[in-house]
Design a protein around this nucleic acid. Sequence first.
DNA 1: GTACGATAAATCGCACCCGATATATCTTAT
DNA 2: ATAAGATATATCGGGTGCGATTTATCGTAC
Lengths: 160, 160
Amino acid sequence: MEDRADYIRESIDFLHRFLVKSIQKHAEEHGLTVPQLRVIAQVLVNKQITIKHLTQNLRMTQSTVSDIVERLSAKGILLKTPNPKDKRSVIISVSEEVLNLIKDHSNEPVKRAVRDVLSLLTPEEQGTVEQGMRLLMKAVTEKMEKDGMGQMESFDEPFH
Amino acid sequence: MEDRADYIRESIDFLHRFLVKSIQKHAEEHGLTVPQLRVIAQVLVNKQITIKHLTQNLRMTQSTVSDIVERLSAKGILLKTPNPKDKRSVIISVSEEVLNLIKDHSNEPVKRAVRDVLSLLTPEEQGTVEQGMRLLMKAVTEKMEKDGMGQMESFDEPFH
DNA sequence: GTACGATAAATCGCACCCGATATATCTTAT
DNA sequence: ATAAGATATATCGGGTGCGATTTATCGTAC
């Protein structure tokens, strides 16, 4: 049990770093950082989006998003226009010029990386991976409910 | 495949955040941050350690470690003494006073969290989780070799 | 209409994270 | 012994991430 818990803990850490590395290479090709690329991707997907929704979708605090958007705006990558419906709010969009340069989504390299990884396994093995992951996720969710850790409830359950 | 890759990617992200949260609560009880607690734990385990080894063990850059150690030193938690064997180096240790206050290791709360999670599953389910994790790790390692991503080779393979 | 509560985003201060640089020191080659 | 290469750590500058605070604005209750 002890060794198994250690293994799982370290694996999660390792896998996470692997995913971050996958997206980092892509970001650097565009002279951006990973968080910047994630923000841009969200703006691309939504065409127009507010700081608030970026905050929710990206699971960052509003202050972090504000800073990142500000720097991307200064770089001419993102546009900030006042929201006519609410003067407290701003609309974030991608400038037309940049739109043609960045046709990719932030998750694409990560998706490709995970897909490549899975393609190295047999369908049966893939099933085991997925099953194990579901069991672990279920157990974690259960523990969180027991502990009253409701702060991560914003996780979008896949396959909803 | 597409949905499965998405699920696995998001699960890894979620699980990672869960682990971080687990240690965060513990850190806050001591008025510390997670990175600080990790550094302190390494110093506790090794009694005396250099910045260089902290850097390697914690998988941070030397500049990050230097900053953290500096702040912990300013708080009186860590001690920095010149290394008599090498004037470029410093020995990091825990002050005697703090030694009595912090008898815990940084990984304990995380270990406990993962153990608690696993205890919610049957032994058979635990086996599936571990098996899936091993398959995934094997596939990721394989892909990294194909891509020449040797930079993460510092991962200590468990059960060696 | 007015007051109050809630909200959106900018900003601040702190800590962390990184790569690059600088300085002093050690190791190796000649 | 000397010079060159390698190394340990502090520091710098830029970016990220957070919680707290501020200011303006919106929504609701009366």
